[in-house]
Simulated assay, not measured.
Amino acid sequence: MKQIVHYLPDWEVYMQAFFVFFVPYVIWKLFNHIPVAEEKNENEIVKEKSKTATGPSD
């Protein structure tokens, strides 16, 4: 009788799957964060300019 452990792949297969799926995901997240941060900074700059142009609001 064959055991279930016999059908599990070696640890190299799990490491390959980790590199194939997880590493590109991390890289995508890092580079995806950059445009969001730039857009956030631009929105803050526009808000600051509109506050100085209209003066302090009470």
Rank of each mutant, 00 (worst) to 15 (best):
E44P: 01
T52E: 15
I4R: 04
M15R: 09
V46D: 10
D58V: 09
F18M: 05
P56W: 11
K47R: 13
Y7F: 13
I27G: 02
V20K: 14
V23A: 02
D58R: 09
T54P: 00
L8V: 11
K40C: 06
P35W: 03
V23N: 00
E42P: 02
I45H: 06
I4K: 03
I45G: 00
E42T: 06
K2F: 15
L8H: 02
L8F: 12
G55I: 05
E42H: 08
H33P: 02
N32S: 15
M1Y: 12
I34L: 15
M15L: 14
I34P: 04
P35C: 06
K51Q: 12
F18D: 01
E48L: 11
D10M: 05
M15H: 05
M1R: 10
N41W: 03
P35A: 03
E44M: 11
Y25P: 01
E12C: 03
H33R: 12
F22L: 11
E12W: 11
E44Q: 09
G55K: 02
Q3H: 08
M15G: 09
F31K: 05
Y25M: 14
E38C: 10
P24N: 00
I27M: 05
V36I: 11
A17D: 08
P35L: 05
A17E: 08
V23Q: 00
N43G: 03
E39V: 03
V36C: 07
E48H: 00
V13Y: 13
V23G: 00
K47A: 15
E44S: 05
P35Q: 04
F19R: 03
M15K: 09
P24W: 01
K47Q: 14
A53P: 00
T52Y: 14
T54M: 13
F19V: 04
Q3M: 10
V20T: 09
N32C: 07
P9I: 04
E44R: 09
Q16P: 01
S57N: 08
Y7C: 01
V46T: 10
W11V: 08
V36K: 15
Y7W: 12
K40M: 11
F18V: 06
Q3R: 14
Q3Y: 10
K40F: 11
T52R: 14
K47P: 00
F19N: 07
V5T: 13
V20G: 03
I27H: 00
V13F: 13
V46M: 05
W28T: 06
F31Q: 04
I4D: 04
E38N: 08
M1P: 09
V46Y: 06
W28I: 08
V13N: 06
N43R: 12
K49Q: 15
V36G: 09
F22K: 01
W28A: 13
F18R: 00
E42L: 15
W28Q: 05
E44H: 03
P35F: 05
Y7N: 07
E39P: 00
P24Q: 01
T52C: 02
L30S: 07
V23I: 10
L8S: 04
S50W: 07
F21G: 01
I4H: 01
F21Q: 02
Y7L: 07
N43Y: 05
Q3L: 14
Q16F: 12
E48I: 09
